[in-house]
Amino acid sequence: MKLLRAATLNVRDLKRSEALYRDWLFYRTVESGVLARDLACSWGAPNSAGLPYVVMQPESGADIYLRLVQDEPHPDYEALKTYGWAAIEICVDDVLKVNERMLQSPFKIIGPPRELDGMPAIFPMQVQGPDDEIVYLTQIRDDLPMYDLPRATSLIDRQFIHVCAVSDLTGALTWCQNVLGLSFGRDMDIVYTMLANAFGVPFEQKFTIATLTHDRDVFFEFDQLPPVAGPRPGWKGRLPQGVSLSTIVLPDFRERVREHAKWLITPPTVHQGEIYQGKRAATMRGPDGILFELVEL
């Protein structure tokens, strides 16, 4: 089964960002309102209660959502240079066509279409939105022996990977395996021009990345940042800047939250709406303060 359920992004102007994802990525709004206090508190962000939000769904109808929350940006936040959720990755049908579309859009192309080293099946590009959110747009051209990767059923389809930047790759991977019950996928050293540009290092310098899986579903990528990176700046008691948290459905939710309760911000609570569908959810604060929201299957 596919575990990814949602990514939550902080945006300055909700109406603007809603229109951006609707008009250029074909996402449609399926829910709107203001953040409930119990939900905000479950994220360790009580001061985010009452902020307006929308939940958006891809044109394909896949039940993997994008939640946009309106909040004031922190002046010290810089994309790609801090620990935490760094990007969302969306599968597309034809990355070259998407690239032409993005050239006409408000998104800034920060990584033109380029095959990954040693992985010709993956053909990604990267864009940056007006709130410094990073979106990978990736065409899957072939199967991989270890993973079942999605094929887009529309030009721009569903999220399939959330990218996380960490200070200690081994430690973060171990935590996810021990606490969330995920499996190690693979690690590799790759030329990562987007990160090289962000940190001002030679483009040929390689960065170590690794994946996490459940069965044959690969859905987390963790990137080892260089020592000059640091914690993400933000407002006290509010959601992190940029990509705030990743929401996944956890098949053994009950056992995981019972055995690893020390990582929970608040006890599990039932929530309504498209993302939760009346199920219990709880958020864990993991390595580098990264938020993992877990939903009961």
Rank of each mutant, 00 (worst) to 15 (best):
V95Q: 12
P112R: 14
E293R: 13
A87C: 01
I64N: 08
Q159F: 14
L182F: 15
R256Q: 09
Q205M: 14
L80H: 07
L182H: 08
A40G: 00
E115F: 13
N178R: 15
Q139V: 01
P251Y: 06
S244A: 15
P268I: 03
P287F: 05
D157T: 01
P124C: 15
L25F: 14
D148H: 12
L239H: 04
I248T: 04
D215M: 12
W43C: 10
F184M: 12
T269L: 10
S167W: 01
R285I: 03
D142G: 13
A6T: 09
I275M: 10
D187I: 04
F207Y: 15
P226H: 11
T29F: 00
M188V: 14
Y276S: 11
F207I: 11
W85H: 09
M56W: 11
P267A: 12
V30G: 07
F160T: 04
W43D: 01
L103M: 15
T266Y: 04
S17F: 10
E259C: 10
F160P: 05
A86E: 07
T283W: 00
R285A: 14
E89R: 00
P240D: 02
S60R: 11
T269D: 00
Y192N: 00
Q104I: 00
F123G: 03
D131V: 06
A45L: 03
L149G: 07
P120R: 07
V54G: 05
S154I: 10
L195K: 06
F292V: 13
L297G: 12
R232A: 15
D93H: 14
G33F: 05
V270I: 07
R16V: 13
E296G: 04
T138C: 09
L173Y: 03
W43N: 02
G181Q: 10
L180Y: 08
C164F: 02
P58S: 09
W175P: 06
Y136V: 08
G33C: 06
S42E: 05
P113T: 15
E89P: 00
M102Y: 04
V69Q: 07
V270C: 01
L137E: 07
I248Y: 05
T170H: 08
A49W: 10
E72V: 15
Y65R: 02
T174A: 13
F107Q: 07
L20V: 08
I248A: 09
A261F: 06
L3G: 04
C176D: 13
Q177P: 01
P287M: 09
D148N: 14
P231L: 05
D131G: 12
P46H: 11
F219C: 08
M56G: 11
R216W: 11
W263D: 12
A198S: 08
P106N: 09
L182N: 03
Q277G: 04
P226I: 11
I190V: 15
E221G: 03
E18L: 14
M188S: 15
D13E: 12
R151A: 13
F253E: 05
E100N: 13
N99I: 02
G278C: 06
L250S: 06
